[in-house]
Amino acid sequence: MKRFALARSLTLSLVPLATTALAHHSFAMFDRSQTERIAGTVKEFELINPHGWLRIMVADASGAENEWSVELGGAGQLERFGWTPDTVHPGDKVIVQIHPLRDGSYGGQLISVTLPSGQVLGQRPGRG
């Protein structure tokens, strides 16, 4: 008896599946024991493989704006959790929760993002 006799919808992409991005690399440069919450303005959003990227302008203590690069999962993975190419736009005010980079560079691995609407999207079940 075939285990998958029941029809089940899968989402296929016409570009390489983002599931491969989950095993692509080990995320060694991110400190997954730490989380940071930063507020900023979206500069660019790329929903691509193997990793999407969210670039946001974040003001430091002096008020100067610095560009942060936040790494996301692949396009297919994000789509499963509700992301679309229109999820964020340049100019949007967002709050991101990240695993920061171990060396203090301006970037991190996305845990979740709070959109201007208040909706929270993440990369794992239970987060938007």
Binding site: K2, L10, T11, S13, L14, N49, E79, P85, H89
Partner: peptide, 17 residues
């Protein structure tokens, strides 16, 4: 594990406004 139904989607990179 056998045939499964699947749906094709397009993944597009947003243009930079």
């Amino acid at each position: 594990r056998g045939p499964v139904q699947a749906t094709c989607v397009l993944v597009a990179r947003p243009n930079r406004p």
